[in-house]
Amino acid sequence: MYVDLNFRLTAQDPVPVDHGYPLYAALSRLLPVLHQQNGIGIHPLQGQYLGDGQVALRSDSCLVFRTHVEQVNELLNLTGKSIQLRRSTILIGVPQLKALVAEPILRSRLVVIKVKGRNAAQLDEKSFQTAVKKQLSACEVSSRSLVEIRRRRTLRIKEKTIVGYEVVLENLAEEESLQIQIQGIGGRRHMGCGLFKGYRTSENSTEISGSAGHE
Results as ranks from 00 to 15, higher is better:
Phe7Trp: 13
Leu9Gly: 11
Leu9Glu: 02
Leu9Met: 13
Thr10Trp: 01
Thr10Met: 08
Gln12Thr: 10
Gln12Phe: 12
Pro16Asp: 09
Gly20Leu: 02
Asn38Trp: 15
Gln46Arg: 06
Leu50Arg: 09
Asp52Met: 13
Asp52Thr: 15
Gln54Leu: 15
Gln54Pro: 12
Val55Lys: 01
Val55Trp: 08
Cys62Ser: 08
Arg66Ala: 09
Arg66Gly: 02
Thr67Val: 06
His68Met: 04
Gln71Gly: 02
Val72Met: 04
Leu75Phe: 02
Leu76Gln: 03
Asn77Ala: 12
Asn77Met: 09
Gly80Ala: 14
Leu85Met: 04
Thr89Asn: 03
Gly93Leu: 11
Gly93Lys: 06
Pro95Gln: 03
Pro95Glu: 04
Pro95Leu: 07
Leu97His: 11
Ala99Lys: 00
Ile105Thr: 07
Lys114Ser: 04
Asn119Pro: 02
Asp124Phe: 00
Glu125Thr: 14
Gln129Ile: 02
Leu146Lys: 12
Glu148Ser: 05
Arg150Asn: 05
Arg153Glu: 05
Leu155Ser: 05
Glu159Ser: 04
Lys160Phe: 03
Thr161Gly: 09
Ile162Asn: 03
Glu166His: 11
Asn171Ile: 00
Glu175Met: 08
Ser177Glu: 11
Gln179Asn: 11
Ile182Glu: 15
Gly187Gln: 15
Arg188His: 10
Gly192Val: 06
Leu195Lys: 06
Thr201Ala: 12
Thr201Ile: 07
Ser202Cys: 02
Thr206Met: 04
Glu207Thr: 08
His214Pro: 15
Glu215His: 15
